[in-house]
């Protein structure tokens, strides 16, 4: 059972890291602000989401698990809002 859980953590966290890597590469390589934001949101949503998912079985109790999920949800909210704001700014011609 613990081997299965370990395997689950390793697979989920590694996939999360892959999305972070992909997001970073996209951020560096994509041509304009909007597509770069699109790349970053993948790291925020899926990357962090998968890492949190992989860490859930490691939590000693339910409260710490809920805290991890809450952190993910807050990062979602913050990231989504920040991307919207940057995108609006870029569309008004403020970006480079």
């Amino acid at each position: 059972m613990s081997l299965l859980l370990d395997l689950f953590t390793i697979v989920a966290v590694s996939s999360g890291l892959f999305f972070f890597l992909a997001g970073t590469v996209g951020f560096l390589r994509f041509p304009d602000t909007l597509t770069r934001l699109h790349a970053l949101t993948k790291a925020d949503n899926l990357g962090l989401g998968l890492i949190v998912l992989g860490l859930l079985p490691r939590c000693p109790d339910l409260v710490s698990a809920l805290k991890l999920v809450a952190i993910w949800a807050l990062v979602q909210l913050g990231g989504a809002t920040a991307s919207q704001l940057i995108a609006e700014f870029a569309r008004r011609g403020g970006g480079r």
Binding site: L74, L77, G78, T81, Q84, L85, E88
Partner: peptide, 15 residues
Amino acid sequence: PSGTLTFLARVLPPV
């Protein structure tokens, strides 16, 4: 003020 910012300012403060 952007609608997105207003939304965040309504949702986030309680948390």
